[in-house]
Design a protein around this nucleic acid. Sequence first.
DNA 1: GATGAATGAGGTTTCATTCAT
DNA 2: AATGAATGAAACCTCATTCAT
Lengths: 188, 188, 188, 188
Amino acid sequence: MSDKKTRILEATEKLLSQYGFHGISMQMVAKEAGVAAGTIYRYFDDKNDLLHQLHHHILSYVAEKLSQNVSDDMPLKCRFRTMWLNLWEMATQDGAPLLTRGQFENLPRSDSPEQQQLEKQLFAKVDRLFDEGKAQGLFKPLDNDILSVLSLEPSACLARKHANGICTVTDDALEAAIEACWDAILQH
Amino acid sequence: MSDKKTRILEATEKLLSQYGFHGISMQMVAKEAGVAAGTIYRYFDDKNDLLHQLHHHILSYVAEKLSQNVSDDMPLKCRFRTMWLNLWEMATQDGAPLLTRGQFENLPRSDSPEQQQLEKQLFAKVDRLFDEGKAQGLFKPLDNDILSVLSLEPSACLARKHANGICTVTDDALEAAIEACWDAILQH
Amino acid sequence: MSDKKTRILEATEKLLSQYGFHGISMQMVAKEAGVAAGTIYRYFDDKNDLLHQLHHHILSYVAEKLSQNVSDDMPLKCRFRTMWLNLWEMATQDGAPLLTRGQFENLPRSDSPEQQQLEKQLFAKVDRLFDEGKAQGLFKPLDNDILSVLSLEPSACLARKHANGICTVTDDALEAAIEACWDAILQH
Amino acid sequence: MSDKKTRILEATEKLLSQYGFHGISMQMVAKEAGVAAGTIYRYFDDKNDLLHQLHHHILSYVAEKLSQNVSDDMPLKCRFRTMWLNLWEMATQDGAPLLTRGQFENLPRSDSPEQQQLEKQLFAKVDRLFDEGKAQGLFKPLDNDILSVLSLEPSACLARKHANGICTVTDDALEAAIEACWDAILQH
DNA sequence: GATGAATGAGGTTTCATTCAT
DNA sequence: AATGAATGAAACCTCATTCAT
């Protein structure tokens, strides 16, 4: 991908996590990316397109990062723990991406069928984890969407609050939180 | 509270849930509320103030609704279930308020200490629930903030997705989700 | 009509005759009219609308001026002469209106049926003149549109060239030109 | 003349007749001409120069086409008729050139003396026609500019309206119009 | 108190022009 | 000679805010 395009996307991501959608202007993006305002329009149709492409960009990044160091032959719990922590680290260490993810949920949605199809693919490993767990009778028999909300969403949510200083999460608490999320989907 | 002020707040809330923060203008608010644009400035310093006061307004509403039909002498599980469902209903039945709540988290933060203090008070019943549960050794010994993320946040999150049609939650799944959230914070 | 709206229309007309369509900006119009740029948008949807409304405004003016001092009981030649000179005077004395009229013919057309209907009405007296002349066997049996091009258009065209200094038209030449236009439509 | 330069001029002409002066950009011209934007600046100083050179280009074309099949030893009326129809055909058959000519009259004028001198030369045959006619006492003793407006301008004007569908001109009407224009300048 | 016309700074976007390749 | 990515000034338009009524 063109160097300039990447810089524009990264600048947008950074500003987005800092100011939210309202409050960032194309001029700000241009300045942050170190390009002229007009240059943005060589790579993006308009502001909306920039946002949508960023959405896609981040989604790809999240999907990749989320599945990092996870292979389908690892034990279920190990896979879960790794993904949970991948999620946590994205939000707390890398800074922007996941933080901003919270923002995307309030967008003029781009719920094209392709987009949904893509999202499914991106999170394939998560789906396989839940599917296997349910097949083994280990997990509660719920839709993957729901299992995801119960066990992974709290990771992102907690990370956001931790990063924003709303609450502090110690290492012990972190381990306990992972355990709690595991408990949530486990068949007791 | 003045009739006009209430109408302005309600108009803002409605528009907010529909268009997001960017994309609503003071003129739109005025028109929706049935007042003149200038009138808004009798009750609010500026747009920011309007948004902050709305935040507070909704927070109060949520706190009240959240604790509805909950008294401290009810069994813990019953209190939990009621609050979980209160949360669910706010987002799925009332429409705007909670849905838009997702938007508030991306505001130029008003994290003044007073605001945090206020939020604490508003959610006092939730705190008491968690405190009692931990005292009885029933709940995991974690901060209330964390317990809240683990057990109540999924309600709001699920409700949002359900209301937006991203996933469908049957009555049975709903009951199972409540149970799962309870499992999450329970000492096993 | 609002004072401001009139001032904006007049400013646009003046600038249009001076710079043509390209080369006038909303800022220029605002400055010339002595209003803020944003004010224009209280009275006009956008630049296009401003142009279209101006078109209509000028058309009305032209139609009124064109028929000035003309009544249907005057002799045909006298009516013709008066209208021919009305046209001439609009372009040479008043300055802007007719000069700019040349510009409107190159617009993204607003050829709505209503618009065409309106134009017909506006130039009713011209039509009556031609109709009577043909009924008397005095004029050539041609469409009014064509008769108009042959006998009145030259007035506007000549006036434009005269006003722009492209050619000079003496009083004698003017009388001769009127006579020539009359000759053009006369049955010989 | 360079192939590229010709293509650029022709592209400009085509776009001009379609969009008018405002509404064509150098990028559009480049695309239509099949060259890079920067290439235009090898042949033209700037946009203004492009427009002026196009003006000249078209003027030459019109002058050539106007005098086509006209020689000074043909009878006056025959010469007149031929030129009148040449004008008519340019606007109705060739499409762009003359139609757009209407646009040139609203340009940031390039009324340099040389330009006017040039125009005189280009339309020499027309001048000779009028001069001879006046010398023979056949035409009215008016400036050639005026005679031209009276007798040839209506051809262009009518053609424009015909091509734009504003009015329809049958073959009979066309002949009558020519006759009428001839009547206009004839000494009666 | 209430209004809404008016403001003008600032938003998004376009486009004539340049310049490294 | 030719390209086309990049520029940034300036275009059109919006909108938070003010103020005379």
